[in-house]
């Protein structure tokens, strides 16, 4: 990706704190990233690493309280989304930024027909008439590969299978041709054969519509297949960010390296034992003052306990937050 090129989305120094009865949880700490038009950014990390929270905060989907965005900027084409009015945010949501949620079973409203739910953003954001919205809905359902689209508009979500429902979700997110599509684990609840269908579909759509996609997942295989750039999150921070081949070919952060080793493959040699990352992910009760990965890290040094490493560029669009890799050769 060319440096200094146009960015459709830019996030700077985002910090999110949850206020709970048991104290504060610092879910997102100083997260910055950007997205070029037409780019696919893969976001990986374990549950609790703050990847969903980060993305949901971009379009104000976090309930507040308990969540509070303490610091940072979210620039969508230069406009700071954290400062806009609720009315403007409603225009952005579904209009300029589409969102596909993880669970297709629960994110469609069971009491409205699929046709109604598809037409809603079209009528609201694009000001279409009922008739025009219906025609466009049929187009959208055909686009995502649902056969007999016109008839299926009258069906309710429970009449669709899991894969079909996820397609409907994608159709709704695409309805207003957003500049950015955020897909939060869109295929995790689906089977591999259906997942392959959805991946193929989204790649076609991206080629046709030229939108940027943020793809959140914990499946490294999916990332390898579709992403241009990968962002690895751990403990509410971005620990590594690089083009996809760099991340898989030359991972710098020990967490990324460990993560790549824990995943068995269906091809290649089979290890006698799986590599494991010992221990548990951290609970973030305060802003990090030391490396959050140090308890599980094999290369832990004294510096790791004193100082939280910041994300630093090591060349080739590759950023890493680790004390060890600074001294080591950035191969």
């Amino acid at each position: 990706m060319p440096e200094g090129g146009r960015r459709v989305l830019e996030v700077l120094g985002l910090e999110i704190v949850f206020h709970t009865r048991d104290g504060e949880i610092h879910a997102v700490n100083d997260v910055s990233f950007s997205l070029a038009p037409g780019e696919v950014l893969g976001v990986v990390g374990e549950s609790g690493s703050g990847k969903s929270v980060t993305m949901m905060s971009l379009i104000g989907l976090l309930p507040s309280p308990p969540a509070r965005v303490c610091r940072g900027q979210v620039l969508l084409d230069g406009e700071n989304l954290l400062m806009v009015s609720p009315a403007r945010m409603r225009q952005v949501r579904g209009g300029e930024v589409g969102f596909v949620f993880q669970d297709p079973m629960t994110s469609l409203n069971p009491v409205f027909t699929v046709g109604y739910q598809l037409a809603e953003p079209l009528r609201r954001h694009m000001g279409m008439t009922k008739r025009a919205a219906r025609a466009r809905s049929i187009e959208l359902l055909e686009l995502v590969g649902i056969p007999d689209a016109a008839a299926r508009l009258r069906d309710y979500p429970h009449q669709f299978s899991g894969g079909m429902r996820q397609r409907v979700m994608i159709a709704i997110a695409l309805a207003c041709e957003p500049k950015v599509l955020i897909a939060d684990e869109p295929t995790t609840a689906l089977d591999v054969t259906i997942q392959a269908q959805i991946l193929e579909l989204l790649q076609d759509l991206r080629a046709q519509l030229g939108m940027a996609i943020i793809w959140i997942t914990h499946d490294l295989g999916v990332i390898a297949g579709i992403a241009d750039r990968v962002m690895v999150m751990y403990g509410g921070q971005v620990v590594e960010q690089a083009p996809v081949r760099e991340v898989f070919g030359n991972p710098q952060h020990p967490y990324t390296r460990a993560l790549l080793k824990t995943v068995p493959s269906v091809t290649g040699a089979r290890a006698a034992r799986l590599e494991v990352i010992e221990g548990q992910p951290p609970i973030l009760t305060s802003a990090p003052s030391a490396c959050s990965f140090r308890d599980r890290c094999a290369d832990r040094a004294a510096q790791c306990d004193r100082e939280n490493p910041v994300l630093r560029a090591i060349g080739g669009g590759h950023d890493v937050a680790c004390h060890q890799s600074y001294g080591g050769c950035p191969a």
Partner: peptide
């Protein structure tokens, strides 16, 4: 089809789209 649908966690070895068998329809 099932095996070809499993994403390969290595872009260097990721299959070309031709070698992936995409099943149509649902169970």
């Amino acid at each position: 089809a099932l095996l070809s649908a499993v994403p390969e966690p290595d872009p260097a070895r990721a299959q070309t789209p031709q070698s992936r068998i995409i099943l149509r329809g649902d169970v």
